[in-house]
Design a protein around this nucleic acid. Structure first.
Lengths: 261, 261
DNA sequence: ACCTGAACACCGTTCAAGT
DNA sequence: ACCTGAACACCGTTCAAGT
């Protein structure tokens, strides 16, 4: 088994996914196995958040001491890597394949990605820190890459288009899920939390000159309805922008090719 | 002074920026003040990373014990919030104002934002977790909002367009800066680290069927040049997509208004 | 007003020892 | 093969005490 310290020295091996591991299930005296550990950690991460997960608490939840976990993983980071890939497995790949055209396929993928980030608030801070090359993450990346390929864009424009869409979704999902997490931690609904935040922001005399200019955006948003509805609307509008932008790039490339003749 | 525990109970007051604080400078016996603490923390965060910053080490750096810091801040989180806003102050607001049109202004803002995230690798994980309503962050947000307003989009479409551009930049800057951080931690250049990662990824027999389909993208990228050049190119291409998309939305709204007559 | 020492309640991880 | 107890080297933060 490759130890964490060894992996740190060899970055090519810096992910749990790059070693073969036996995956016996529940054979031991405590009935422990990696799947049970990962499932329990996802449950705890969802309920208590990334900061609250500790090896000792996770072990207690599993009726075992912290040190037992080290038989199945090398470090705490490994557990989070396994948990992340397990969550990537929640993507509904069939729904993605059922999409009519690339526009629709990108929308479905974006919506699933966003929903996943919001459902598991610990995913976005974690996703930034690890390589994400587990089998389920790769499967999703492949679907994304295919959808972008289907646009007909040239190979050198595809990565940019892919980034535009899916780094946007990552950023949006991060802000949305962290907002939800903060509201939940404060014991408030998102609507209550939003009203409170805007009020506090508005009351501070230090920023009033600039707030004037931002006031109408805040008012427009407030008039639109619940915070949840605003998140949905703005996300859809952003996807409209991104898809229209890709369509323009595709058309420009077609135009360029015609002129070449 | 509002204690951290009190703020947690009152989320409207959940940011350091919502309380007035005296900002005496260096009056004490140890010559300590908040500005010195924040400056030292930024230096340490840049050099050692978010995970390595501790109150004890920061204090040692300042020639003082950890507990002294608690005279100037309530929690470690406060220090990070102050450090973040200080970094938002690095934006070149004059360069943004000098831009010719909204397209150019968005490009300049996006490039500055990206550069800031890459320069300070601890910013993106931190930015996800805090409210970001310090004076410098607000000033930047105001510039962004103005650039979007200048597009001529209707008020209800502006937030979506803003998200599309700046959540993309956040997501892209996050991946790029974390990649750089990982490479640096492994003591490698980005190019070495990239080659190593792709090789490891490719060698794993478990994913080979899917890798086939992604091979040509990897090859195209490798043929383009250094990793740094690829980051730049893909970022520019993504901005092309985003700006073209906003132009389409503006045109559609103008079309809709004409038909109404 | 500003700074400290000692202490509390935690961490992740190692290592030798048990069954 | 699997699990544990004790220990190491850390954390952030509180509190009473010093100057």
């Amino acid at each position: 088994m490759v130890k964490a310290a060894d992996r740190a020295k060899n970055p090519a091996r810096s992910s749990v996914w790059l070693e073969k591991r036996a995956t016996r299930s529940g054979g031991g005296p405590a009935g422990l196995d990696r799947d049970r550990i990962v499932a329990a950690s996802i449950r705890m991460l969802d309920e208590e958040g990334l900061a609250k997960l500790s090896m000792r608490k996770l072990a207690t939840e599993l009726g075992v001491t912290a040190m037992s976990l080290y038989w199945y993983v090398d470090t705490k980071d490994d557990i989070i890597e396994f948990a992340m890939d397990s969550v990537y497995g929640e993507f509904d790949l069939a729904a993605i394949d059922a999409a009519r055209d690339w526009q629709d396929r990108i929308r479905v993928l974006a919506r699933e990605y966003r929903a996943m980030l919001v459902r598991h608030t610990w995913m976005s801070p974690s996703a930034g820190q690890y390589l994400n090359i587990g089998p389920n993450a790769i499967a999703v990346a492949y679907k994304i890459q295919q959808a972008i390929s289907d646009t007909g864009l040239s190979l050198d424009r595809q990565p940019g288009a892919m980034s535009a869409v899916f780094q946007f979704v990552y950023g949006y999902g991060t802000i949305e899920s962290q907002f939800g997490r903060r509201a939940a931690e404060a014991g408030m609904s998102q609507d209550e939390f939003y009203v409170d935040s805007v009020k506090a922001f508005r009351d501070d005399p230090e920023f009033s000159p600039q707030i004037e200019g931002m006031q109408e955006i805040l008012d427009e948003r407030a008039s639109h309805g619940s915070v949840g509805a605003i998140w949905d609307r703005d996300f859809d509008h952003a996807l409209d922008v991104l898809i229209a932008g890709i369509e323009v790039m595709v058309a420009r490339e077609a135009e360029g090719a015609r002129r070449q003749k």
